[in-house]
Lab assay of single mutants.
Amino acid sequence: MSGNGNAAATAEENSPKMRVIRVGTRKSQLARIQTDSVVATLKASYPGLQFEIIAMSTTGDKILDTALSKIGEKSLFTKELEHALEKNEVDLVVHSLKDLPTVLPPGFTIGAICKRENPHDAVVFHPKFVGKTLETLPEKSVVGTSSLRRAAQLQRKFPHLEFRSIRGNLNTRLRKLDEQQEFSAIILATAGLQRMGWHNRVGQILHPEECMYAVGQGALGVEVRAKDQDILDLVGVLHDPETLLRCIAERAFLRHLEGGCSVPVAVHTAMKDGQLYLTGGVWSLDGSDSIQETMQATIHVPAQHEDGPEDDPQLVGITARNIPRGPQLAAQNLGISLANLLLSKGAKNILDVARQLNDAH
């Protein structure tokens, strides 16, 4: 009898209710805020589980004197976190989706994509230029951005401005803007500013005609071990179906173009009346040469937790077992079709030249 009692006690200790789920994140304040929001949602869904947040620095956090596009290494903000995932030191990792490459290392998958916040870019102005827009900034004003995508589009749109690289986390960039006289304004992701509670610093939100956004911008991705079915089931509740389908289309477009950090590629997606609209573009580094096109596809946005595919093969690095396969494939095909259209119009040449120029500098 006593033996059975011990077995029952052991089973209770090993039951999922007692389990601590370890969540990996970057150390920056924004990353911690984003991770806290994901953990809060998981806690609400699984009140019996405990969650421990483990923060670590990544290569991208450490190399702050070089433009991201020049470092010449993929997975700048993800490699150390993936290493911890691989060694079973954490069970899942919360990322900004735009930091996750469209091809993940073997053994990993994006197990959830959370509801997207505003994906557009924002302009934050130096205190002396508050009330201005990019259009009304004085001639030769210097605007800071760490992104080739932003610089290429904005140089084309605002030729009277000069664009220079600015690195560091959000706090560091804002301090550089406010305390030094080098920059009249800087460009940042609206979602990051909003998550930090800095709505009052948003001086201008850039519309798609001015600057399309990065693939996955404004959404959070939760990376897990691809074979860890328990954790895949656990994080599945975080999937937002519309965000998922938009981001599958965007990531398929980028992957098929073979774009990345070192080339200016941008997108804009919208879901309306059962249609998914995808606009994508590529630019030369100075913005003088560009190709942009829009395509659409009829896609039914499923309700969360309709029964999805059981075999769960990944699409552009994403596993969404609780979302039907048909809409996911339709979104992926839309991204591939748009990429093929741009490639047929000469996108590869623009991107190759951009890559060579970026590598040469």
Results as ranks from 00 to 15, higher is better:
22 R>H: 15
23 V>E: 01
25 T>S: 11
27 K>W: 13
30 L>V: 08
31 A>T: 01
36 D>C: 07
36 D>V: 12
39 V>E: 07
42 L>D: 01
43 K>P: 03
52 E>D: 11
54 I>W: 04
56 M>F: 15
57 S>H: 04
64 L>P: 12
64 L>C: 12
65 D>K: 14
65 D>M: 04
69 S>H: 12
74 K>R: 05
77 F>Q: 04
77 F>T: 01
78 T>D: 06
83 H>E: 13
84 A>I: 05
91 D>G: 05
92 L>R: 01
93 V>S: 04
93 V>Y: 03
95 H>N: 13
96 S>A: 12
98 K>Q: 01
98 K>E: 04
98 K>T: 01
105 P>M: 09
106 P>L: 12
108 F>Q: 15
110 I>D: 04
112 A>R: 01
115 K>S: 14
120 H>E: 14
123 V>T: 14
123 V>H: 03
131 G>K: 08
136 T>V: 10
136 T>L: 09
139 E>M: 08
150 R>P: 03
155 Q>F: 11
157 K>Q: 12
160 H>P: 10
161 L>W: 07
165 S>M: 06
167 R>L: 09
169 N>H: 11
170 L>N: 10
173 R>F: 01
178 D>P: 01
180 Q>I: 04
189 A>M: 03
190 T>V: 11
191 A>D: 04
198 W>L: 12
198 W>N: 12
203 G>V: 14
204 Q>H: 12
204 Q>V: 13
208 P>H: 11
209 E>A: 03
215 V>C: 15
220 L>N: 03
220 L>D: 04
224 V>D: 01
225 R>M: 12
229 Q>S: 03
230 D>Q: 15
230 D>H: 01
232 L>S: 04
232 L>P: 06
232 L>A: 08
233 D>A: 07
233 D>P: 06
234 L>A: 14
235 V>R: 01
237 V>W: 01
237 V>D: 01
249 A>F: 01
250 E>L: 01
250 E>W: 01
251 R>V: 08
252 A>S: 01
253 F>K: 01
259 G>Y: 05
259 G>Q: 01
259 G>A: 11
263 V>F: 08
268 H>T: 01
269 T>V: 01
270 A>L: 01
272 K>W: 15
274 G>C: 04
275 Q>Y: 01
277 Y>M: 11
281 G>Y: 01
285 L>H: 08
287 G>V: 15
288 S>H: 01
289 D>E: 09
289 D>T: 15
290 S>W: 15
291 I>S: 07
294 T>N: 14
298 T>K: 09
301 V>C: 08
301 V>P: 01
305 H>N: 13
307 D>N: 14
310 E>G: 12
321 R>P: 07
322 N>H: 09
323 I>L: 14
324 P>H: 14
326 G>L: 05
332 Q>M: 15
334 L>W: 08
340 N>F: 07
341 L>R: 08
341 L>Y: 07
348 K>Y: 01
